[in-house]
Design a protein around this nucleic acid. Structure first.
Lengths: 261, 261
DNA sequence: ATCCTACGTTCCACTGAGTGGGACGGATCC
DNA sequence: GGATCCGTCCCACTCAGTGGAACGTAGGAT
């Protein structure tokens, strides 16, 4: 429903946030001109605000432009919800990795996307497009389906009625089929993805449920390449890890998960 | 040399940054009054700026106060230098963990501190105070010593002449002794820490060197509890991992490491 | 029940921080 | 040579931002 358009450029803070948000996970350094293009700010304003951000250690000025600085990283890692989740999850993710030696993901919902909180893998991991701090659509990833299945009816409906972006020939773009899969997820506690977001990748995921047994706080997945990897054979392990993490996370929490779209 | 005092509170951005920086890794949610105390801002200003930050999804308003939001986490994870390092390092850290089953750290320098970029461990990890995104002094941690040994002469001198904060009875507070240890690090490529930052913890670390063989881009360490854990027995593995990571990171970079103190 | 203190919220008249069009110099391309 | 894109700097205008003050409420002490 929300127009979800960028920050208000009429305030300093809006300008600053717009500049910071210009950086995608793929960008390393952006020249001033690019910041101007992406934000729509006047050149002089962008220049000044960027310089201020450098002064505040949120940006680095490097030959060729600006980049998000280590100070930004530090600050981001202090976000309590995500960091706590990450810290509690790490041992379980390790177990999963050690057992499978495939790429393990931990992700949470934000709006209509999965945001990856952790990604661990070895030297020969399947080339997944996912990145920590990056986003992927809900409807075409295993973690996404798991989160979507447990999401509130509004989100679920909004995704199912909205256009389902086709990422690969296997992406599920039929709302009916997707709905049936989501119902299955609620029954089995497991979701699969078969080359629906990226050709050559298979995926199993399970929900990390709050103690109420309904709200999904996060999702865990194991990803591998078509060929050597059989997602079904790890379903039990993923579900067990997610369940265990859920019970740990549930301890010592009464509040809401936060985050809304 | 730098007074290193907080952001300029006379600008909106300064106020915003001051508020964001009020959060330490230990804080979950801070009430408005606490933000006022920590930043020194007038109550009304703090209230307004905090509300703006909520609007920009950098803070969440939760019962009891404010906390750094998921949007902040996302943004921080886009800091290219740290994220790239993290992604490249993960497989090597995994190897180390699998081999040792002790807590593995990856850290970089900022000023006179180590900032931890990754921390992976299992269910029964030694209770280390380190946190991802958190800081520890250079002189009393294994990674810190490794980074300090390879730091520029200014930083090294500045730390050695400055006061060496005592953290435990074992903390090295004698500049001469520390200097000798640093020299040894340059020769052996390994640093140890024996309950110098935290009672009951032992640690080995090795530097991740740039292709020039001098600049330390990061440090890797393996930490374990007094008793079952013998740091010496993992020295070789840690050094090998750090070296391998160094050669991978060095590929495809010509620029500077960035970050200064 | 009453006082007191500490909190979050709101109001609003004042003012200087922030604004951005424009001008400048340097690179690069054709 | 001219055209184009870049980063930087200037500076008179103005409205976004300011913060003292007043308010309602919650909780603890008496």
């Amino acid at each position: 429903m929300t127009g979800e358009l960028g920050p208000n450029l009429d305030t300093v803070l809006g300008k600053a946030v717009a500049i910071l948000r210009s950086f995608t996970p793929e960008d390393q350094v952006l020249p001033l001109a690019e910041l101007v293009r992406r934000t729509g700010l006047p050149k002089a304003s962008a220049h000044r605000v960027a310089a201020d951000l450098v002064g505040h250690q949120l940006l680095d000025k490097v030959p060729g432009g600006y980049r998000l600085s280590g100070g930004m990283f530090e600050l981001g890692m202090r976000a309590s919800a995500e960091r706590t989740l990450l810290e509690l999850a790490m041992p379980f993710l390790q177990d999963l990795y050690e057992r499978t030696h495939e790429t393990v993901h931990l992700g949470v919902t934000d709006g209509h996307a999965v945001v990856y909180v952790a990604k661990i893998g070895g030297h020969r991991q399947a080339p997944a497009p996912s990145r920590v701090g990056g986003r992927m659509p809900l409807h075409c990833t295993a973690i996404g389906k798991v989160l979507l299945a447990h999401a509130g009816p509004e989100v679920r409906k909004s995704v199912l009625t909205g256009p389902l972006e086709r990422r690969t020939p296997h992406t599920i773009v039929a709302p009916g089929l997707l709905r049936r899969q989501l119902d299955a997820v609620l029954e089995t506690g497991i979701a699969f993805e078969r080359e629906e977001s990226t050709p050559g990748l298979l995926c199993v995921a399970a929900p990390v449920l709050d103690f109420d047994g309904h709200t999904a706080l996060a999702g865990i997945s194991v990803t591998g390449p078509v060929g050597r990897y059989r997602p079904e054979s790890h379903a039990t392990a993923v579900r067990a890890a997610a369940q265990a993490l859920g019970s740990v996370v549930s301890r010592g929490r009464s509040g809401r998960p936060g985050r809304s779209g």
